[in-house]
Amino acid sequence: MNTNMERVLRLQDVKMRFLDNQVLKRINLDVYRGQIIGYIGPNGAGKSTTLKIILGLLEGYEGTVEVFGKKIEIGNVDYKRKIGYVPENAEVYDMLTASEYLTFVGEMYGMDRKQAENKALALMTELGMESAFYERISSYSKGMRQRVLIVASLLHDPDLIFLDEPLSGLDANSVMIIKDLLAELAARGKTIFYSSHIMDVVEKISNRIVLLVDGEIAADGSFDELKNSSEKGSLEAIFNQLTGFESHQETAENMVNLVMGEEQK
């Protein structure tokens, strides 16, 4: 890894446990400026937990987390100014209109009200949502909500952007926009931390892939590096291999048998 680059995020020996469940077992990760990190792993591997720790939503972890070269501490929220976040399960105040919600989020990041509203409108217009801008989010479709969340994460011009399954619910055209958007942001020096289950997308847009299995980093490198080491052709196949899952066909067959009430093989 190129050490001349500016380090944006560093996790050192981060461990997290919920009661008897060791969710993260020693995570070490350095992230540099301009990288697009695809953070992947099976359900329950600890991806969201990692994001929550970095964003200060979870405490009680061991180890240190540094953002922009400074250790994050309880009570110090300043580092969040330069972070954007698209949460996984679309939490929004949906009684508000997109205009109100986005303006509010902008203000939370210290933007001026008018400025936040104009910028939000301009961004939403780019995504083809100017007509819905003054309607309540509760009336939106899933894809529309997702676009609001994406705009909300970018409004304040963050340097480090976390996206948890950002493409869910988006149509094919929007997916293309967002993919290019991420590439463009990275090219201009933003750092993207991207978590998803859709392997094709991760494969295409990430320049570094981090695979988390059972709270540990099982693989870390560019797609080509992973491909060379595992001799598989697609990220999906690599993912299956590294997570030790080979029996998908058999499982599928068993399930159909169960659904149709036949004897299980």
């Binding site: 964003l55 200060g56 939503l57 009570g75 929220v77 300043d78 580092y79 969040k80 100014r81 972070i83 976040y85 949460p87 939490e91 929004v92 105040y93 989020v105 939370m108 990041y109 210290g110």
Partner: peptide, 14 residues
Amino acid sequence: VRDKVILHTKPVDA
């Protein structure tokens, strides 16, 4: 605590 994800990810202190 429902709006925690919205508010606590912003640079607003507790």
